[in-house]
Amino acid sequence: MKYQFEVIPSKCIGCRTCELACAFAHAQNQKPGKSRIYPLAYAPDKYVPVTCLQCDDAACVKSCMFNALRRNEETGAVELDKERCVKCGACVAACPFGCALIDDVHDEIVKCDLCGGSPACAAFCPTKALVYKRV
């Protein structure tokens, strides 16, 4: 893995720019998709951007019976192969962090794919709470 995605909660101000960026980055036919990242308040005015941790021994990968989830060794992301996905929802149920989601708008399962190597959330985060960097 050549890259690492880092979340720095202390810098997050809960502005939800990442959420918007994510939805637009995953737009289809001009319709924004469901965001894969959520800045959530754990205490008044204190936020954590919750998104996929791209776990090493990922439960989503293990739960998929159809081999639709595979790691991209280049970006480090666990990517969903839409062509192989049947939307059974096993990954959604299995992810302990709640980071595999059902996108009702496009009728598909979604999860963070690090935008194929240039995550829009990190690019737009005004406080640099999200960093994607080479290791």
Partner: peptide
């Protein structure tokens, strides 16, 4: 892992990270 829904799991994640 199957005991809570994805939304609640995200909230729990936020709290734990918090």
């Amino acid at each position: 892992y199957f005991e809570t829904c994805d939304e609640c799991k995200r909230m729990a994640t936020a709290r734990k990270m918090g």
